[in-house]
Design a protein around this nucleic acid. Structure first.
Lengths: 143, 143
DNA sequence: CAGTATCCTTGCGGATACTG
DNA sequence: CAGTATCCGCAAGGATACTG
């Protein structure tokens, strides 16, 4: 499933195709594209997106319970960043006992789906990364 | 082309499928998976990978010339990180005048191919991100 | 040419305490 | 419950000068 995406075109085609795209990323003056991309590398962003994708709609504390190890501060920060980029929708019920629900936007769901192949590939190949790092570290401490 | 990857399964299937994967990412004790993923969010990593993907094999300074705005320090750092994770191969010719060439490894090329759909999608939708941010910022300064 | 060595600023992420 | 407010350490990233 992952492979159909890349094998439908030759590597050469893909590289040529991605040329334009990457030039766009490189010349991004205000850095929006890069910052959106950075959601992928953030400590909690993808976890939150994934959790909302699976459970649909959750309250602040419910997300926190499902994200092992996240602090309140980081949860709030992460949600704000995702909301700012339109990936997550915040709905405040404005009740006396605070009640706020978060859900994925269309865009957020799309990002989640876009991440799955890369994600899967990394998990499947984590051992090779680990090995590579061990070799590298051994060489660069022994010298 | 991008869409075939995700539309061959239902969103529901994808989410169920990604459950296991994400659990893997979440429980990654030493953080290798997350750190590999973080290459996507790094300021220069994907640019270097892409440049090497397009041009094949380049010297340190040649990469620098093709990456507008990167400093020598960041270029060296980025190359080391990518080399450590086995995404880039460094070949030192050990000549009197220093001569080092960098190229993508098989793994590095694979990562590049994995990034193209996400990448493309972001560039195509950058305007919606920009709009979302403007709205968000306006609301959160006016209050 | 291919890097190091310094110094600096910024933001991430964590810990803890507090609030409407 | 859903957040703020502080304070902290650390790594990313940049600027500039120097080196084998």
């Amino acid at each position: 499933m992952r492979d159909t995406a890349v094998q439908s075109l030759s590597e050469e085609d893909i590289l040529r195709y991605s040329q334009t795209v990457c030039d766009g990323l490189r010349d991004d003056d205000d850095g929006v594209r890069r910052e959106v991309l950075a959601h992928a590398g953030n400590r909690w962003s993808l976890g939150v997106i994934h959790t909302l994708g699976v459970y649909g709609q959750l309250r602040h504390a419910e997300i926190g319970r499902r994200m092992h190890g996240i602090t309140q501060r980081m949860l709030t920060r992460t949600l704000r960043h995702l909301e700012r980029d339109g990936l997550v929708v915040r709905h405040d019920f404005e009740e006396v006992v605070p009640h706020v629900e978060y859900a994925l936007s269309e865009t957020g769901l799309k990002l989640l789906l876009m991440m799955v192949p890369l994600w899967t590939w990394i998990v499947e190949n984590v051992d090779s990364f680990r090995t590579s790092r061990e070799m590298f570290d051994r060489q660069h401490t022994a010298e």
